Amino acid sequence: MNIYDIARLAGVSIATVSRVVNDSPRVSEKTKQKVRMVMEENNYTPNVFARGLGLDSMKTIGIICPDVSDIYMARAVAFLEHRLREYGYDCILYCSGQKQEKKEQALRLIQRKRIDALVLVGSTYAGRGSDDSVRYIREAAADIPVFLINGKIEGDNIYCVYSTDDESTYDAVSKMIEAGRKRILFLSDSHSYSANKKLEGYERALRDHGMPVLGDLKLYVKNQIHYVRDILLSRRVLEFDAVLATDDVLAVGAVKYAHAKGLKIPEDLSIVGYNNSEFSVCCEPELTTIDNTGEELCNITIDNLMKVLKEETVPQEVPVRCVLVKRCTTDF
């Protein structure tokens, strides 16, 4: 009986067996118990080779994001790669799209590359630990550390760094209301974890200020500037005096709408975007926007990743506050 037999019987990699032998914190307690039980049942005694395998490293980190053509994703991946190279690590990138099947397939493919850890970029991978939709991530974390940027997943060997999106939208909407805005449009392009947290903050601010939460003031559209403009122009009965957009592209669409309607910004229409991207300074007037501090999220992720690979203890969750960048589309 050798390490390969134990790995096969336990349904894990030989590296995982070696980490169990070395009592590495990079392996969940559940997996440790399963491997140890197989070892005891087969009277397996680890040798020097088995112990040494746990120290083996390809100095490679896997990165998965939905779509690298997205500006936020592209910036995050570029920054992650730069920081990893500072530590002497390479990276492998897979784009998974948004569909569940494709996300699971991307993770299976990247795991075959013998990576030391996995970074998931974006809240599309988020979910509660008990959700079936994130089971494939929790299973991957039994073999390697998993790091999630801008989302939360509960589970052993999973580490999350995320923006406090609900707090940031709560603050922005509160400022709009206190400046006299009565009908604030929530403009989004998805129902992702991050978008839902932004919606939570929006609704909570309305309720706390004694204002109703209205379904006709929650609009989901494609993340395209002219599409947003045209949709808003086509909805003649939709009246609003402010817009909170979950992305700067959506907010620029609202600016285009205001120009087409002959509305003054911010006098007639107050607009807040999200992400503090290049789009926020490419329109006229320039956007007030919420900076979700993407680089800081990436920095914390890489620093914590390196600590985990050294078997140091790091928090499993790190919330990071967003920053409101005041420009010319608001009057608060």
Rank of each mutant, 00 (worst) to 15 (best):
L206F: 03
R207Q: 14
R207H: 11
R207T: 13
D208K: 09
D208R: 09
D208L: 12
H209S: 08
H209D: 09
G210P: 00
G210I: 01
M211Q: 00
M211D: 05
M211R: 12
P212C: 09
G215K: 15
G215P: 10
D216W: 09
L217P: 01
L217D: 01
K218A: 09
L219P: 05
L219K: 01
Y220F: 13
N223D: 14
N223A: 14
N223W: 10
N223K: 15
N223M: 11
H226E: 15
V228I: 08
V228G: 02
R229N: 04
I231F: 00
I231L: 11
L232Y: 06
L232M: 09
L232T: 03
L233A: 08
L233N: 13
L233P: 08
L233H: 05
S234K: 10
S234T: 11
V237W: 10
V237M: 13
V237T: 12
L238K: 10
L238I: 05
L238D: 00
L238E: 02
F240T: 00
F240L: 05
F240R: 03
F240Q: 00
D241K: 06
D241F: 06
D241N: 11
D241R: 10
V243G: 02
L244T: 03
L244I: 07
L244M: 12
A245S: 08
A245K: 03
A245G: 08
T246E: 00
D247M: 06
D247W: 11
